[in-house]
Nucleic acid binder design. Structure first.
Ligand SMILES: [Mn+2]
Ligand SMILES: [Mn+2]
Ligand SMILES: [Zn+2]
Ligand SMILES: [Zn+2]
Lengths: 125, 125
DNA sequence: ACACAATTGCGAATGGTTTGCAATAGCAAA
DNA sequence: TTTGCTATTGCAAACCATTCGCAATTGTGT
């Protein structure tokens, strides 16, 4: 948290109240939240500022985005982890990376699925 | 393709021109397309009908949705396969499931990533 | 305290997706 | 074939999440 504020400063950004409130929420609420979720938690920060803050934090690599059901969910960048997402309602939960022997007490029918990413030749300059 | 039309019929849906055109496009264009992509290919079908068709085809399990960069991409359900997606531009390509020894001639920095899915206790009735 | 630039809040604009409704097309029975 | 009934379409308007423009405010360094 301290290091995050430093990262903002060292990149020439101010430490404003909207930014601190969004970061505090994300650090206390260890799950992925949508921009709207976040705004509903901190109603005294304007919607537009929430969006601007999240976009900035993503550019700086402070938050990660995950897409689920066509909406962006934000969470603090952290040690590598996976997400388990309910196919029916979208409820999600982080699980440690060593999933093989993990006991999924809150989920059944657990499956894992690959997603491949890369950079195509055209983009690879 | 014949089986798909049967599936529509057997579920009580008519075989209309919009539906046939969307299906034909998806079957000839073996990659994931957005609703807008699809509408731009078949301009004589109204936008709203394209969306309605895609939503129906998804409910019936005829097409799969993949989320990339916060947009829904549709492709025909097919034998299990992965997608390789360019992080920069979103270009995607299907690759066979046996990816370990595959030569990714069009991509570099290829990585695979896990996504876990399941059904949570609440939904599990 | 001061000054200046960055940032905010507000309201308006945007753009993709959905919806209401009257006109049309598909399908099955006559 | 023709008829009749319902599902489906096209169109325009509504919707809703996200972005933008701009004047007022805040943060920061002097
Ligand atoms: Mn996370
Ligand atoms: Mn596919
Ligand atoms: Zn690319
Ligand atoms: Zn659930």
């Amino acid at each position: 948290m301290k290091d995050i504020l430093e990262k903002l400063k060292s990149n020439g950004y101010k430490l404003t109240q909207p930014r601190e409130k969004v970061l505090e929420l994300l650090s206390h609420n260890h799950k992925a939240l949508s921009a709207q979720d976040i705004h509903s938690f901190i109603k005294d920060v304007d919607k537009a500022s929430v969006y601007r803050t999240l976009n900035l934090l993503e550019e700086l690599g402070i938050v990660n985005i995950e897409n689920f059901n066509n909406e962006k969910l934000y969470c603090l960048s952290a040690d590598p982890h996976h997400h388990i997402i309910c196919k029916k309602c979208g409820f999600s939960e982080e699980v440690p990376c060593t999933y093989e022997h993990y006991n999924f007490s809150n989920f059944s029918n657990v499956q894992h699925q690959m997603t491949l990413t890369g950079v195509c030749n055209k983009c690879n300059k």
